[in-house]
């Protein structure tokens, strides 16, 4: 990991004019990432942002770090090659739901199962923005868009369920209306060794305005957001009057007055069994029901790059550093005088 540095937010701001639509949720995320970077003590020169294609994918141009704005869906693959060869760098991947869950879905799940040291920020606005408003792999069934005038037939991904299903060692959810929470989640994800994914509920005020309004608007949050805290019973609502119980693989919302605090499920983000986290991810399939936010899972498993580099060290220890001449003479040889 890079040494720590003292920076201000300005050190993380590039000279490029930000060109998202006015009012886009991405502005808040950009600010939160820049602030998280200063709080983490990271150095811009040791940081790389790699993105694919989409509105969110313009992100690297606005960060005063190293960065690649690559091609649609492929950022996790490109970032994997970088992270495996340059463990000294802090490698981040940024993309939207179309980029990371649709065209790049394959790379996402394979990066996750390998547990390569990447921090992946998934901006989920449940719509294709840059192509001007088609349904995405997280759009709700029946959604009317330009490409689904009679309503989308596609069943959406539940990103947290998908990510947990790929055996993620770290997955968290946050939203673009809560800067403090975003900063905390980005820092936690960054500090995780392995692939860390943060799903960010992000509003597209042009093509999918208010997608998360029912849970993220100021007045709704208390009753609709379930903050997950490690080691604590899962409670939410005014004075914590609601709670969550996970039983037989299913999570359900209960009233604390009815069941008592002792009956509530205690959240352990490092639970080796991901099924409780999975059950929590199923609590709300649309943002119209109480929705868990925070760290679903933060679990340690061997990180791919560390093992790869250990294999290299082991091979050198066993066989000595590679010698080309020895290699060329490695098959049976014969002499001709």
């Amino acid at each position: 990991m890079p040494e720590t540095a003292t920076t201000t937010r300005k050190d993380w701001v590039s000279d490029q004019e930000v060109r998202w639509c006015p009012g886009c949720g991405d502005y808040g995320i950009l600010l939160a990432v820049q602030m998280a970077m200063t709080e983490l003590g990271n150095k811009p020169d040791d940081t790389v942002f790699i993105s694919g294609i989409g509105c969110a994918a313009r992100f690297p141009y606005y960060m005063n770090t190293y960065g690649i704005h690559s091609i649609h869906g492929r950022a996790p693959a490109i970032a994997s090659g970088l992270a495996l060869t340059r463990p000294d760098l802090d490698v981040w991947v940024v993309g939207g739901d179309g980029d990371i869950l649709s065209i790049g879905g394959n790379h996402l799940i394979h990066a996750i199962r390998r547990n390569i040291n990447l921090t992946i920020l998934l901006f989920n606005n449940r719509i294709y923005g840059l192509t001007k408003g088609q349904y995405s792999p997280t759009s709700e069934e029946g959604k009317i868009t330009k490409s689904s005038p009679m309503g989308s037939i596609d069943h959406p991904f539940n990103p947290i369920s998908l990510i947990l299903g790929a055996d993620a060692t770290f997955v968290a959810r946050t939203h673009d209306m809560d800067r403090k929470h975003m900063i905390e989640m980005f820092k936690r994800a960054h500090d995780h060794k392995g692939t860390a994914v943060v799903e960010i509920f992000q509003n597209c005020n042009v093509f999918n305005n208010g997608a998360y309004g029912q849970i993220t608007s100021k007045g709704a949050r208390e009753e609709m957001i379930i903050d997950l805290h490690d080691g604590q019973p899962i409670r939410f609502g005014a004075e914590g009057r609601h709670g969550v119980i996970v039983e037989h693989g299913v999570a359900k919302v209960v009233e604390v007055a009815d069941v008592g605090v002792g009956a509530l499920t205690v959240h352990h983000h490092d639970n080796p069994d991901p099924s409780v986290a999975f059950a929590l991810s199923r609590l709300a399939s649309n943002p119209d029901a109480p929705t868990p936010m925070g760290v679903f899972r933060d679990f340690e498993r061997s990180e791919y790059g560390s093992v790869l580099n250990a294999q290299i060290a082991q091979a050198i220890a066993d066989k000595g550093p590679g010698d080309l001449d020895t290699l060329l003479h490695g098959l049976p040889t014969w002499e001709i005088d």
């Binding site: 994997s80 495996l84 790379h107 394979h110 790869l308």
Partner: peptide, 20 residues
């Protein structure tokens, strides 16, 4: 690096080249 597909194979190689 045995990648998940041909695209990730070349993508990871390009990422490695970017890293030097």
């Amino acid at each position: 690096f045995q990648a998940e597909d041909e695209i990730a194979a070349v993508g990871s190689a390009l990422g490695a080249s970017y890293g030097g």
